[in-house]
Amino acid sequence: MEFALLFGILPLVSIGLLFIKDANKKRRIILNILLILNAIVFTLPMLAAYLSTAEGESMFNENTGGGAYLWFYMFLLPLCGFVLFVLLILKIVFAYVPKK
């Protein structure tokens, strides 16, 4: 159950971080684009599994469904989690940098 929460938390935290203020507009735009790309990359295997599944089949079945795409999460979950952590730290640090 806790592991399943990661699939919803990671994109939601990425979206939530978009609303943190930053004095530098260019830096804010770049970090927001990276957050959106991180969320999109994280959801791509689930979307691919859903779209490649035949009607009436389970998308989690590796033989007849798109379940083979879900194995990409073995690589993407730690990678996207690490990227999100780095972007979180950057957003928090830049939120407290005073304007020049």
Rank of each mutant, 00 (worst) to 15 (best):
I20P: 07
L10T: 00
L90S: 09
L88P: 01
E57I: 09
M46Y: 11
S52Q: 15
L37R: 09
K26F: 07
E55T: 12
A39R: 01
L79E: 07
L47K: 04
F85V: 08
G56R: 11
I30E: 10
A48T: 04
F82N: 10
R27H: 09
A95P: 00
F19E: 10
K99G: 08
A48V: 03
L5S: 01
Y50T: 13
P45C: 03
N63H: 09
N38I: 01
S58L: 10
A4D: 03
E62C: 10
G81R: 05
L77N: 08
K25M: 08
I36F: 01
L12E: 00
K100Y: 12
A54S: 15
I29W: 12
I29D: 11
E2H: 07
F72I: 00
T53H: 01
L77G: 05
K26D: 10
S52D: 11
G56Y: 12
L37P: 02
G8D: 01
I30T: 14
I40V: 15
L6K: 08
L44Q: 08
A48H: 01
I30N: 13
I20E: 05
I9E: 00
G81L: 12
L17E: 01
F82C: 14
C80G: 02
G66N: 07
Y73F: 05
N61R: 03
S58K: 08
I33C: 12
G56T: 13
M74A: 13
A68K: 15
P98L: 08
I89R: 05
I9S: 07
P98R: 08
L35A: 05
P11S: 00
F85S: 06
A68I: 14
F60E: 08
R27N: 13
V86I: 14
R28L: 14
L31D: 11
A48R: 03
V13P: 00
G81P: 12
L76Q: 03
Y69G: 04
A54G: 15
P98A: 06
V41I: 15
I15P: 02
I20C: 06
T64S: 14
F82T: 15
V83N: 09
N61A: 15
L87M: 12
F19N: 11
G65W: 12
D22Q: 14
Y96H: 04
P98Q: 10
F7G: 04
M59K: 02
N32M: 09
V97W: 06
F42Y: 13
D22H: 11
V86G: 02
N61P: 07
I30D: 10
L17K: 02
M74I: 07
L12Q: 00
S14F: 00
N63D: 14
L77H: 06
L88Y: 07
I15C: 05
F60L: 08
S52T: 15
E62T: 15
K100G: 13
P98F: 12
K26C: 00
A4W: 04
L35D: 03
Y69Q: 05
A4P: 01
